[in-house]
Amino acid sequence: RPMNAFMVWARIHRPALAKANPAANNAEISVQLGLEWNKLSEEQKKPYYDEAQKIKE
């Protein structure tokens, strides 16, 4: 299954978030990633939607 825009973004940002929160488990990191993603504007998300579309094609 191809990655969606959030997954493209999260793949880039997960390592830094995990390093900054070494005690957090994957579920907690995923929740935090979701919160951070939701704070982004549509303009900030656009490159990730574009990349996800390329992956689908």
Score class of each variant (00 low, 15 high):
Gln44Phe: 04
Lys54Met: 08
Ala24Asn: 03
Asn21Asp: 05
Glu43Ala: 12
Asn4Trp: 10
Glu43Val: 08
Asn38Arg: 12
Gln53Gly: 06
Arg11Pro: 02
Asn38Glu: 11
Ala5Met: 01
Arg11Ile: 12
Glu43Leu: 10
Met7Ser: 06
Arg1Phe: 13
Ile29Lys: 01
Ile29Ser: 01
Ile29Gly: 01
Arg14Leu: 10
Leu17Ser: 02
Asn25Gly: 09
Asn26Arg: 12
Ser30Leu: 15
Glu28Phe: 12
Arg14Tyr: 14
Leu17Cys: 06
Lys19Leu: 11
Ala24Tyr: 12
Glu51Ala: 15
Leu40Thr: 01
Tyr48Gln: 00
Arg1Pro: 12
Glu43Ile: 09
Leu40Lys: 02
Arg1Gly: 13
Glu43Gly: 07
Lys46Gln: 11
Gln53Thr: 09
Val31Glu: 09
Ser30Met: 15
Tyr48Ile: 01
Ser41Thr: 13
Lys45His: 01
Arg14Phe: 14
Ser41Met: 03
Ser41Cys: 03
Ala23Val: 06
Met3Val: 13
Asn21Cys: 10
Arg1Cys: 15
Asp50Gly: 04
Ala27His: 12
Glu51His: 09
Pro47Ser: 04
Ile29Pro: 00
Pro2Ser: 14
Gln44Cys: 06
Leu40Arg: 00
Arg11Lys: 14
Tyr48Phe: 11
Ala52Tyr: 11
Gly34Met: 15
Gln53Leu: 11
Ile12Glu: 09
Lys45Glu: 00
Leu40Asp: 00
Asn4Gly: 07
Asn26Ala: 14
Lys46Pro: 01
Ala20Trp: 04
Lys54Asp: 05
Lys56Ser: 12
Ile29Ala: 01
Phe6Arg: 01
Glu28Val: 05
Asn4Tyr: 08
Met3Phe: 11
Ala52Leu: 08
Lys56Arg: 13
Glu57Arg: 12
Gly34Tyr: 15
Ala52Asp: 02
Glu36Pro: 00
Ala5Ser: 02
Ser41Glu: 03
Pro47Tyr: 08
Pro22Leu: 04
Asn38Trp: 07
Ala24Arg: 07
Leu35Lys: 08
Glu57Asn: 11
Glu36Arg: 08
Phe6His: 01
Leu33Thr: 01
Ala18His: 10
Pro47Met: 05
Pro47Trp: 09
Asn21Ile: 04
Glu51Cys: 14
Arg1Asn: 11
Leu35Asn: 08
Pro47Glu: 05
Ala23Tyr: 12
Glu36Lys: 08
Leu33Ala: 03
Lys19Arg: 13
Ala18Leu: 10
Ala18Phe: 05
Met7Arg: 08
Leu33Ile: 02
Arg1His: 12
Arg14Glu: 06
Asp50Gln: 09
Lys19Pro: 01
Gln53Pro: 02
Ala18Met: 13
Pro22Gln: 04
Trp9Ser: 01
Ser30Tyr: 15
Met7Lys: 06
Val31His: 13
Leu17Gln: 03
Met3Arg: 07
Tyr48Asp: 00
Asn25Thr: 15
Arg1Asp: 12
Lys19Ile: 07
Asn38Lys: 12
Tyr49Lys: 06
Ala5Gln: 01
Tyr49Ala: 04
Ala24Glu: 03
Glu43Trp: 08
Asn38Gly: 10
